[in-house]
Amino acid sequence: MTTENSLFFAGIDVGSTMTKVVVAGMDGEILSRVVGPTGAEHRRLANLVMEEALAKANLPFDRISYVIATGYGRINVPFADRQVTELTCHSKGIVSLFPNVRTAIDIGGQDAKGLKIRDGKLVDFVMNDRCAAGTGRFLEVIADSLSLKLDDLGSLSLKSTRKLSISNTCTVFARVEVASRLSEGEAIEDIVAGIHDAIANRVVKMAQRLGIEPDIVLTGGVAKNIGMVRAMEDNLKHKVLVPPEPLLTGALGAALLGKDFVQKAAASGQTLPIKPRKLEEARFFT
């Protein structure tokens, strides 16, 4: 029950494609969640996504005890009290949902990462190399070339009876390859299945550098695609767990880390410094 003494924590995850906010309560319960596109302008306007999340939680901003920004755009959140990498925040969020996780793979809009987790703590990680191959962007580009909706790709891939081999080294080359497969008269579902397999293969190879051990959790926007989940399982030869809202683990972890920081400080009689509770857009020149 919320009382005057209740504390609230916000996590904001500014990803390359989507911005996510989670507002959590003292017991780690999620009070509100918002997902919005990051975009060129929206990156400056992280405050709007936060405003929406606060409205949903029915809380004024000054009731939030601690705000952590994470994700690729974390440095553009002027109202955040602290910045923590998405590596640590995703681990935290994933562990809160799957305490036995040992390997987590997050495939976002423009990057992919593998997290090695032991006893609920991040111990090592790998990230993809500045390239869209092996990320959600790869799927977007292919959906566009095939005039398909991104959301339909996954289920379409499951209809394939003869998965085609598509090279996984470059998004731009893959697009050309898809066009040539189409002209050869190949079935769209077989091409799409090949694309899913190409991404999964690339990401799994990267994560193998960490030594993959179960439980394995898949997060990020790409985890919403059932075809990708299957392709990952095929490549990993193991079942993967997917949270109900795979986009939100970073923001959730950020909110929960804020709770940890505040409680840890309070236990030693300290108060953490916080930023003025003013929501405004990021300025590049101050």
Partner: peptide, 16 residues
């Protein structure tokens, strides 16, 4: 110009 991903890797390492 390409230092942002490096920042995340190094910051992540320091957090670990």
């Amino acid at each position: 110009a390409a230092l942002a991903p490096i920042r995340t890797r190094i910051q992540g390492f320091v957090e670990v």
